[in-house]
Every structure is written in C-alpha cells, then in structure tokens.
Amino acid sequence: MSDTVLSLDAVEKVFPNGVRGLAPVDLTVRAGEFVSLIGPSGCGKSTLLKLIANLHGPSAGSLRWWGSDFRGVGQKGRRLAFVFQDATLMPWANVGRNVRLPLDLMGVDRASGDARARTALARVGLGHAAERYPAQLSGGMRMRVSIARALVTEPDLLLMDEPFGALDEFTRNRLDEEMARLCYQDGLTTLFVTHALHEAAFLSSNVMVMAAHPGRIHARYAIDRTIVRDEAFRLSERFAEISRELAVLLEAASHESHLAAEMQT
C-alpha cells in the first residue's frame, strides 16, 4: 500500500545477554496515524522504538520504511526524527543552535538552517527563546525545544519515547494538545511511547497495548481520527469511555506479564 510508512514483520529482539526484549511483533503504521505504545515497564516499548529508529537491529524478522530497507530513509525526503525521554539538549549551546543541530550535521548552510530553526521554534511556541540557554528554561520548555529540533528536519515519521514523562500534569496536557495539532492538522505521522493511559487515550488514532516477558503486542485499539483533540474532548464522555476500555486492556496486559514472569522463574 502506498501510504504505508512503516511495516514490521515478525520482528524479534534478543539481547546479547540472552534477554528476550521482543517476541515476534507485527506492526503497520500508515501516513497520518498517531500510534501509541503503552504497557508495563519492561515490555519492550523503547526496544521497539529503537529498532524503528535503526539504533539497533532486529534478531529476526524484517522492518520496512516506506516499503524499502533503512538505506532508503533520508532519501527522497523521507526522514525520521526521534525525541527522547529527556530533552537531551546540548547545555553549551543556545536554543537556536540546539534546534539547528540536525541541519548542521546534515550539512545545511547556516543561513537557511537559522531560518528553519526559527520556524520550528515558532511551531512549538518558542519563537522568542532562540538566544536562551537550556539551563535557563523550564522542563516543559526544554521538551518543546527538543520537539522543535525534531520538527526542523521536516520528518515524515516522528518517534517519541515517553517525551513528557517528567513533566507536571498541566504542562503535559498543553504539550499533548500541541502534539495533537501537529499530527491531526499538519499530518505528521507519529509513534509515541507512553506510560500514561490518559495521554494515549487523548492523542492516539491507534493504541498498541503491550505485555512483557517477552515483550509483545497484547491488544490493538483504534480511535476515531475525526475527533477534535482539545480541552473539551478531555472532559467528554467519549474520552472517559476510551480511557475505561484502555484501562481494561492494560490491566489484562499487566496481569499476563506477571503470569509470564512467574512462569519464567
């Protein structure tokens, strides 16, 4: 299919120390989808995301990015961007230079790099902060800079590993709303790891509920894409219903993970 961004076919990961990070996983992500990975700690969410970012390779199975192998990424304008759990900014560089970093590494010239960095910063509401240094920013602002650094490359697939886990509820909700805009209005395909059920319920078009020992996808849950993800949605009956259904799935996944862990010992 032409709008398939990512397809995983029976992808497994066994670590050198013998730990089974992932049992065979099948996953397809289509353009414009917001896919969340939720599940108990140790169920392989980060492992899966790093496989997709090609930060390590699978032990078995195959991954396809836009229908070809990883060498195709970066060509024909097909780009990945990764946002980590921490903002991972360079403390010695100001916000503007931090955002420009991927462009610098790609060899984009200074002037157009600066212009694109300004645009990206404006998209996350930090147009005024280019001259400031990471140490002078709040945690939420640092995370925004990190998102701007991902957006500056105009990625076709954004990977985020628990990006807002360290933030307070209020800041997190604001950033969730911004993420929803980026995906549902600007069409940015996103793969999002989170511990927080309400975050997955708010943002996702597709939720993958994962279980551990070994890591696998326990259940898949789709949410209507046409819902407008705003403050009103958070208070709606529909949101509460989605959260409830996800809670049931997550509970079952956790239960299975515990059973599997006991079986192993």
Partner: peptide, 22 residues
C-alpha cells in the same frame, strides 16, 4: 550523554563533527 551520542549517530555525524560538537 549517551542519548545525545545516539542522536549524533542517527544523523550520521562524522568523527570530526562528533569530536568537536559533542
């Protein structure tokens, strides 16, 4: 920072770039 180092690898930074920028 290992995450920052991973970031540099992801963007295929050269040895020299990694040395002087990281």
């Amino acid at each position: 920072d290992p995450d920052l180092a991973a970031y540099f690898r992801m963007y295929k930074a050269s040895r020299l770039q990694t040395l002087f920028r990281l």
